[in-house]
Simulated assay, not measured.
Amino acid sequence: MKLTKLFKEFLESEKSTGIILIGCTIVSLILANSAIGPSYTGIWETQFSGHSIEHWINDGLMAIFFLLIGLELEREIYIGELSKIKNATLPIFAAIGGIVVPAAIYTIINYGTPEQSGSGIPMATDIAFALGILSILGKRVPNALKVFLAALAIIDDLGAIIIIAVFYTETLMFTNLMYALGIFAFLLVLNRLKVRNLIPYLISGVFMWYFMLLSGVHATVAGVLLAFAIPFGNGDKKSTSYILQHFLHKPVSFIILPIFALANTAIVLSGELGDILSHNYSLGISTGLIVGKPLGIFLGTFIAFKLGLGKLPSKLKWSHIFGVGLLGGIGFTMSIFITLLAFDNATIINNAKLVILLSSLVAGSLGYFTLHQTLKNHK
């Protein structure tokens, strides 16, 4: 299976991003728990125009991250792995299984508690970390496995976006939502009129983000809507979508996501780790990511295969799918993002972030060693 230049570039950027995010997380944890901890955490809590810097990062900068995710999803749907139903079926079913099973596990453990709203936390896969770990295994990783994981993670992100829009909207301001959707409709008209200049799309996108922010629907959804309004054309290097996607890769990978990691992993460690891990929400997150994710991804893929809806590429084994499922348990970016929407209590948010980091570490390590062994055996 040949990989397109843009997809190779995508894989390389995700590999580098994963390494940088690990470094940012370690640095942030050390600084937050050092002598300058209060000053460091205070930076992210600094108020600007009525909101903290952390809030602007999560609602503003991350909208650009979601714009990139939308552009990548659009490319996959039009000309990529998701463009052919037969190829798309397995990663689609894998993603659905990887969303439903962890959410069900979390809900069962936390049913009837105030923390039940965190069901979306273990649903998400961090594409940067997952692809980063896969890339460490080197050239023995079949291209088909890289594409499967990338498609799975992108569909997973789409599921997370839908969940954020539907379940984490508390108060809906209908008028502002209509303004945002009106701008989206205007952009679709520009698309139909074959307007290829990026300027009107980006300026209108800022206004759509603003009204989406005021509407109560999470503002990052505007980034995805903008992505699907931007003309795709035939997807070549001269297409508007390609140009923007190519431009955004490095700023998102090397600026936006590292800033997000620094701001959201400034966790002050307090209390006994055993006590933190014993909370129902902690058990729901850890079990959902470490057990629910690989189980759901494997079962989803297996069901699609048994129903005759898709088949494994020739070089892939079921052990590879299970290993990728374990990598799917690396939540990080999306899981932390949903944590901020699900909970209001600062202590619970801090504890949940710590559990996400530990669970992601366990899932990533298990995934690496599983694939290291299975790829060696099937060389």
Rank of each mutant, 00 (worst) to 15 (best):
L326Q: 06
W318E: 06
A346R: 15
L309G: 07
S319Y: 11
I338K: 08
I303P: 12
F343W: 06
I321K: 04
L316Q: 07
G323V: 04
H320Q: 06
G331V: 03
T339V: 08
A304Y: 02
S314W: 10
I321M: 13
I330A: 01
D344C: 08
I348C: 12
L341C: 15
M334I: 06
L357R: 02
I321S: 15
I348P: 10
I336Y: 00
I321C: 06
F343I: 12
V355A: 05
S335E: 06
L354M: 10
G331A: 05
L307M: 12
H320M: 01
K353V: 12
N345W: 05
T333K: 04
N345T: 09
N345K: 14
N350L: 08
I348T: 13
N351Y: 07
F322G: 13
L316F: 11
I338F: 03
F322W: 09
D344P: 12
S314V: 15
W318F: 09
P313M: 02
G323E: 02
L358I: 14
L354Q: 11
K311V: 04
H320G: 04
S319V: 09
G308N: 07
A304D: 02
G328S: 06
L341E: 15
I336C: 05
G329L: 02
V355D: 05
G308S: 15
